[in-house]
């Protein structure tokens, strides 16, 4: 009961959502069931279950950090995290508060600067990773870095050489890059479809955890 019924639910809902795509208008020709309405309604179920699961994550974060308040070396940092969370929740409680006042000020002066700085830090780490990859001296690593170098040179004004480089960049992006991205997209689509079929058929059950 604890595993069989969930497996049945997965199979039935998965097949319904798969079939509704092939029956535009009336689902399985049943007069009073619209495929579009069914899709919209069941899609909302996913959203509702997802949003009501959010407290689980918040609870877990809060619990972990409240526990850390007991540890002397972590106390200050956990208090900062909890304070940041509480201030944002309280300051954004009413919908109109979110677009002004403390909530917006913290968003613009804390969240945006820190996030963009963290991403800009990656420039240094990516550069060091490129250096290590280049030391590998393999043909494939050389192709990768040569392409990256040509793409990056596009942003540097170099007079007449820029024209040639821009032409080369356009060709790289529109031909081999597009071919690679398409092949990868197709591979991902096939992988996602295979995984979804395995889940619907009950072959893949790891999402249910252990008893």
């Amino acid at each position: 009961m604890k595993r069989e019924i969930p497996l049945m639910i997965v199979m039935v809902t998965g097949i319904i959502m798969f079939l509704q795509y092939f029956f535009p208008g009336r689902f399985l020709f049943i007069p009073f069931i619209s495929s579009e309405k069914l899709f919209e309604f069941l899609n909302d179920w996913v959203m509702v279950i997802g949003i009501l699961s959010l407290p689980l994550g918040i609870w877990s974060l809060l619990k972990a950090n409240v526990n850390k308040l007991k540890a002397a070396d972590e106390r200050f940092y956990s208090a900062i995290l909890l304070m940041g969370f509480l201030v944002m929740v309280i300051s954004g409680w009413m919908p109109e508060w979110r677009t002004k006042g403390v909530h917006l000020a913290i968003f613009q002066s804390v969240l945006i600067p820190i996030q963009s700085t963290i991403f800009s830090l990656l420039a240094f780490f990516v550069a060091s990773a490129a250096y290590r990859a280049f030391r590998a001296r393999s043909v494939l690593a050389t192709i990768l870095l040569l392409t990256a170098f040509i793409i990056m040179m596009r942003f540097i004004p170099m007079g007449p050489i820029s024209d040639i480089n821009n032409w080369l960049v356009e060709k790289i992006l529109m031909v081999p890059n597009m071919a690679a991205k398409r092949a990868i997209a197709m591979g991902i689509a096939l992988g996602a479809t295979a995984t979804a079929i395995k889940i619907i058929l009950g072959i893949e059950r790891t999402y249910m955890g252990r008893d």
Binding site: L61, L81, G84, F85, V87, V89, H103, L111, I114, Q115
Partner: peptide
Amino acid sequence: RLVAGVATGYWTM
């Protein structure tokens, strides 16, 4: 830690 807390609060709301 500040960004972790603020981002969680922001996305929650």
